[in-house]
Design a protein around this nucleic acid. Structure first.
Lengths: 344, 344
DNA sequence: GCTTCGATCGGGAGCGCTTCCGACCCAGCC
DNA sequence: GGCTGGGTCGGAAGCGCTCCCGATCGAAGC
C-alpha cells in the first residue's frame, strides 16, 4: 500500500476544491448532485478514506469513545460485560466510531486514571458495571461526558436493565403456579441492580397477595457467585418451614442453590422451584435447566453507546451550559423476558 | 475543565519556542538542563498533556494499536483471551499507547474488515487466537504490521505458549509417577497449539520409554470444551485396557473427562490420573482439583504488544524494504509451569 | 433592466504538534 | 585574533482535514 490518497488528491482528481470534497465526505452543505457524484467517484477510484487523525484535529473531536469497567468484572468467568462491550462495539462501528477499552481497579486511586482521561483522546466514556465512586468523581470533574451501563450513580445518565420488571415477571410466574411461600436469595446487595431485583420481587409478590416472609429473604454483601449460592442455601433449604420456591438474584446464585438442593436430594421443581436472573450460558445447560430472566446484554451496550454518542455530539454543538441543562438525569431501561425451563 | 493548555501556552509560560517544548516533551534533541526543567515546570503548572491527535497528525502515527480476536473466542466462558487482552492493555498503557479492541466473525468476509484496517487509525495489530485465513490475507496486503498471539500463520511474527515444553513437563511428571500406559484427549486439533501439545506429549512420553498407544490418542476436530471432554471420554475410559493416566489438551476437556470418570465411579487419581492444560479458573475449584500446566495469559498479551510496538516503530524509521528484511519470522515462546494438584 | 437572493463552490485560516534547517553563541584551534 | 565547530534554540513548513466567509452566477422580484 503506497502513500494514501489525501483529500487534495481527490480534489485534483475530481477537479474541485478540497472544501467541496470535505463537504461531500461529510454529507453536509449544499453541493450540486453532479459535483457530489463526481467527487464520490474520484474518491472510490483513489481508494480514499479520510484520515481519522486529521479529521480529529480539525474538528476538535477524536471519534473514539472509551469503555471502562472494573478489572475483576472483565475477567469473571461469565462473559456478561464482555457481551455488553460487544454490543457497544457494534454500535460504534455502525456510527463510524472507535472504542477504547480500559479497566480500572476495584479500589480506584488517583494514579489509576485511564490515560485518556487526561489526554482527551476520547469524546465520551461508557462505564459498565459498578465502579469506585472516586473514579466517577474524577470523571465528573474531567468534564468528559459519560453514561453508565448497568449501574447508577447520583443523577448520571445511565442505561439499566429493567430489574424490577424482571423480578415482577418472576413473581407473577411463581404466584401463577400456586407458590405462596417463596424465598429470595441475593448477594452483592450494594449493587443497585441487585437491590432492585430484591425490592421488585417482594413488592410484586405482595401485590399478588403473598408477602414474602422476611426470614426467607437472605441477602449477602459478597460476590454473587455459585459458591456463595451454595453457601447461603442452608438458610433457606434447612429452614423449619422450607419455601416451595426461591428466586435468586442471579443465575450463579441459583446454580449454587441447585447444587445444594441436589445434595439434599430435593426434587426440583417438585420440592423446590428455583428461578434465576440473567440467563447466563450455563443456565440452559445445567443438570436441571434453569428458569430465569433473560437480559439483553448486547442491547445494553448498544443503547449505552448510542446515548453517549449523541450526548457527546450535542455537547459540542450546543453551548456547554445549555447542554448541561438538557442533561435530564435520564435512565433508560432495557426490557427483560422470562424464560421458563425445568427448574420452576 | 476550561480550554486545555496547548504547546504554545507552555512555550509562552516557559519563555521558549514551541520547538523546544516539543523536544523536551519527547525527550529528544539537545536541550540544556536548565531549559528542560524550566519547560517541565511550566508544563506541570499548566497541567499540559500533549494532544494525541495533533501529535498523530504531525508524526504520521496514531499511537494506538488494534487488538483483534474472533467474536466467539471473546465471548467464551473461560476468560482466556480476555486476560491476554488485559496484559496487552497493560503493556500499552506502560508505553503510552492505546488499544482498540475489535472482533472478526469466525468466517471472515471482505465486509467484515475492522474499520481501522482501512482508515489507518492504528499503527499495528495484535491478532489473538486463531482467525480466518482470509482475514490474515487482508491484513497482510493492507501493509499494517501485525503479530499473532497464540496462533501461527505462515512466517508471520507470533508469540506462542511453550506448548511442547508444557506437554513435556506433563509427560515427565506422569512417567515419574510410574504411569506407563497413558492416553491423550484432544480437540480443536487444527489449532497449532493443540497440535503442539499432542505432538509434544507423545514425543516426550516416547523419550521416557513409554510410547503412547495410538489407540489411546483421541483427537477431535470440534470445540475443546467440557462437553466434548465428556463426550469423548468413553473412548478412553471404556477401552479394554484402560490407561492409568490421561493428558487432556486443555482444562475444559479434562473437566469433562473428570465428569465422566465420576459417573463411572472411578477414583481419581487412584484409578485414573488426569492432567489438563491452561490452568483455568475452574481447575483449582473442581471437585478434584486439577493438575495442569499453568500458562501466563497476561504475559502473552504483554509480550505480543511489546513486540508489535517495536515492530511498528522500526517500520517507520527504517526504509520499508529494510524493515521487511529485519522481519525474521520470529516466534517468541512464553514459558509454562506444571501445577500439581489432586487429580494426578 | 437592475437589484436581491439563494444555491454552489473556492480561499484560506487554523487545529496542535513534529521536524528540518539555519541562526546564534561561546569554546577551542592554529 | 579570526575561524571552525559543537551545543542550543527559534523559525517555519507542513501533516490532512474542517469550517467560516466571501466570490460567483443565474434566476427571481419590482
Amino acid at each position: 500500500m503506497s502513500a494514501r490518497a489525501t483529500i487534495t488528491d481527490v480534489a485534483a482528481e475530481a477537479g474541485v476544491s478540497i472544501s467541496t470534497v470535505s463537504l461531500v465526505m461529510n454529507g453536509k452543505g449544499a453541493v450540486a448532485a453532479t459535483t457530489r457524484s463526481r467527487v464520490q467517484m474520484a474518491a472510490t477510484r483513489l481508494g480514499y478514506t479520510p484520515s481519522r487523525t486529521a479529521r480529529g484535529l480539525a474538528a476538535g473531536r477524536t471519534g473514539n469513545l472509551g469503555f471502562v469497567l472494573r478489572e475483576d468484572h472483565f475477567c469473571q468467568a461469565e462473559p456478561f460485560y464482555t457481551r455488553v462491550f460487544l454490543g457497544a462495539e457494534f454500535e460504534a462501528r455502525r456510527r463510524g466510531l472507535y472504542v477504547l477499552l480500559s479497566t480500572v481497579p476495584a479500589r480506584y486511586g488517583p494514579d489509576d486514571a485511564p490515560r485518556f482521561l487526561q489526554e482527551h483522546t476520547v469524546d465520551g466514556i461508557v462505564v459498565a458495571g459498578s465502579v469506585d465512586d472516586a473514579f466517577l468523581d474524577a470523571l465528573t470533574t474531567s468534564g468528559i461526558p459519560f453514561v453508565l451501563a448497568d449501574y447508577a450513580w447520583r443523577g448520571a445518565a445511565s442505561v439499566q436493565l429493567d430489574n424490577e420488571g424482571g423480578a415482577a415477571l418472576v413473581a407473577a410466574h411463581l404466584a401463577g403456579r400456586g407458590h405462596t411461600r417463596v424465598g429470595f436469595l441475593g448477594a452483592d446487595r450494594d449493587h443497585p441492580s441487585m437491590a432492585a431485583r430484591s425490592a421488585g420481587f417482594t413488592a410484586a409478590m405482595a401485590a399478588h397477595g403473598h408477602a414474602v416472609d422476611p426470614r426467607l429473604i437472605v441477602s449477602h454483601r459478597g460476590a454473587a457467585d455459585r459458591r456463595t449460592g451454595a453457601t447461603l442455601a442452608p438458610a433457606l433449604l434447612d429452614a423449619p418451614d422450607r419455601p416451595t420456591a426461591v428466586f435468586c438474584a442471579n443465575d450463579a446464585l441459583a446454580l449454587g442453590l441447585l447444587d445444594a438442593a441436589r445434595e439434599r436430594g430435593l426434587d426440583v421443581p417438585g420440592d423446590l422451584a428455583v428461578v434465576g436472573f440473567d440467563d447466563v450460558e450455563g443456565a440452559a445447560l445445567a443438570a436441571t435447566p434453569l428458569t430465569t430472566v433473560r437480559v439483553y446484554k448486547e442491547q445494553l451496550g448498544e443503547v449505552a453507546l448510542g446515548l453517549l454518542a449523541e450526548r457527546s455530539a450535542s455537547e459540542r454543538e450546543a453551548a456547554a451550559e445549555a447542554a448541561r441543562f438538557a442533561r435530564a438525569p435520564a435512565i433508560t431501561r432495557i426490557a427483560t423476558d422470562l424464560v421458563v425451563r425445568a427448574s420452576g
